[in-house]
Amino acid sequence: MGALYKKEFKAYFNSMIGWVVIAFLLFVAGIFVNAVNLNGKYPGFEVSLGSMGIVLMFVVPILTMRSLAEERATKTDQLLFSLPMSVTQMVLAKYFAMLTVFAIPIGVMALYPLFLLLYGSVNLITAYSALFGYFLLGASLIAIGLFVSSLTESIVISAVVTFGAILLCNLMSGLANMVPRTSIASFIAFTVVIFVIGYLIYSMTKNYWLAFFCGCVAEAVLLGIYIFNRSVLAGSFSNVMKWLSLFDRMNTFIYSRMFDITSVIYYISVAALFVFFTTQSVDRRRWN
């Protein structure tokens, strides 16, 4: 695993990708810090970071697009499969390599609050907690990108789909406000979600009855809630969407200036879940 991690990490700097990602992030960070903190004379470093969420939409697809798609296209995945290394180790090595590349500009950005200290007082605790939140947001988006990359052989498709997925994450809270807030609308929306999850369970396990059983139980619970306590459902779907929104959670770090443990756990869970999905998706190709 260590060998693959090192190889992957080096590969990012043998090609342009690593440099481009780092340069772009630092360039944009420089612009915002200049505008908000230096020119705007505002002491909160976290506010500059708040504007940088959108940059991840461009940076993460570039970082993740090649990771697994290219291995598949050039058939180098056969080498990795034949090496004494499990699929989980292989996926983790790739994930941590990307995370390390992403951590480099974050490390440089960690110096900015210290520079700002030269000109006045800065709340270092909120600044670093926001930077940590930003890193975790990136980490979970990278996991999503890694998963998308495992689904296709084409680097372009991998990049475009990842971009779309992150765009959707970004728009999630806006979309949540557009969803009808009546209880019947929530009921229908949840039913659709249950179908989708049921299908995913089926496609992963190939076990029709397990998927059917899980779907039925979930639907029964939902129906029970709808019949006995309808008011709970009103607006619940849009609340769930907001709760799930990766980008919204950044705002607690930035504007509420809170180190939100729930969000930290949420980001780590999303990352772990998508890394797990990736191992499943890579492993499944060997069985088909």
Partner: peptide
């Protein structure tokens, strides 16, 4: 394999070192 699984942007030496370590 039928198509040699090589990383084109590495040198043979780097590549073989990676495989040996793995």
């Amino acid at each position: 394999p039928e198509q040699p699984p090589l990383y084109l942007d590495m040198t043979p030496y780097e590549y073989l070192c990676f495989v040996a370590e793995a």
